[in-house]
Design a binder for these strands. Structure first.
Length: 292
DNA sequence: AAGCTAAGCAACCGCGAAAAG
DNA sequence: GCTTTTCGCGGTTGCTTAGCT
């Protein structure tokens, strides 16, 4: 069955955003919160596709975006998270406060991919074990500079499901899928710093959450993983039995940027992913049972 | 200084999944 | 339970800029 286009595409602006468009979008979202991307451009007075608005907001305009200068610690974490999760940019980004999936993806494709191909002795020792366990995932097209122009579109993409038998098997992670939680109820605040007007939907976190220190929050989340043993990649089954997606909880909002914590977080992930298979299977079926 | 190439990054596209009707 | 709509993700493209000859 056909799929309706996300927008008419007729008469819509494309390409780089102007400061005026940025201002309109920011103003609208500050007043009304995120979500309803389809209708947002019209309401905000923008001649843009809703997807474009969302992307612009998520990757550039959000107040908590941290731009530029990936630190060595972040760099290291990205490499190691990638070795565990593969090209799950949004998951990796969710663990790096202020970083976006697009930024991390670009960073990987331009810097780290090369680095992985020509590892220094230090890198080699640091990551060798993980690299053995998970196949090197090429960036979609590497650092190719296709000056041949023209859109080849998704022909390669269609092959991604592993028709190439020569490829080594990927590390499979059998964990429950996150479920989508409506932004209206659990907005993606990302925000220890990102607070709109008090009536904004973006300020949905409870007072308790707001008062809780980042460290407390982090350790709580860590204990959620430990106690409940229920994390997808990586949704959490919270004690009061609300199944939510961690990316909606935005635990990264609560993670302090100190790098000891990033290291701790990595170790937790690594531990989860190295649990034996029966645990994965149980977790998977448990998660699925919740989702049916 | 001009032309060329590579690198970096913002933005677009299509698809899958979940929500809504 | 089926269809349609909406959202979010990952892959890809193409513009801009830096570096080199």
């Amino acid at each position: 069955m056909g799929r309706a286009p996300c927008c008419s595409k007729v008469g819509l602006h494309k390409g780089p955003w102007t400061p005026k468009e940025d201002a309109l979008l920011t103003k609208y979202i500050q007043a009304h919160g995120e979500g309803q991307w389809k209708s947002l451009p019209k309401k905000a007075g923008l001649l843009r596709c809703g997807k474009s608005c969302r992307l612009r907001w998520m990757n550039y305009l959000r107040p908590d975006i941290k731009r530029g200068n990936i630190t060595p610690e972040e760099d290291d974490l990205i490499i190691r998270m990638h070795s565990l999760l593969g090209n799950r940019w949004s998951l990796i980004a969710g663990r790096l406060p202020g970083r976006t999936d697009n930024e991390i993806k670009n960073y990987w494709n331009t810097h780290l991919c090369k680095k992985m191909k020509t590892p220094t002795a230090e890198d080699a020792t640091d990551t060798a074990n993980m690299m053995l366990e998970s196949p090197e995932q090429e960036p979609a097209s590497g650092n190719k500079k296709k000056k041949n122009g023209g859109k080849k579109k998704n022909k390669q993409k269609k092959n991604k499901e592993g028709t190439n038998s020569a490829e080594p098997p990927k590390t499979q992670v059998y964990l429950p899928k996150p479920i989508r939680v409506k932004a209206l109820y659990l907005p993606r605040t990302d925000s220890n710093t990102y607070t709109f007007d008090s009536n904004s939907s973006a300020s949905a976190s409870t007072n308790q959450e707001k008062e809780e220190s980042p460290l407390t929050k982090e350790s709580n989340l860590a204990s959620e993983i430990g106690n409940v043993g229920e994390s997808d990649d990586f949704g959490f089954f919270i004690e009061d039995h609300d199944l939510v997606n961690a990316s909606d909880i935005e635990c990264h909002s609560y993670f302090p940027s100190d790098h000891g914590s990033l290291q701790q977080l990595y170790e937790e992930y690594y531990h989860l992913l190295n649990m034996d298979h029966t645990q994965f299977i149980e977790m998977n079926s448990f998660g699925e049972s919740l989702l049916v």
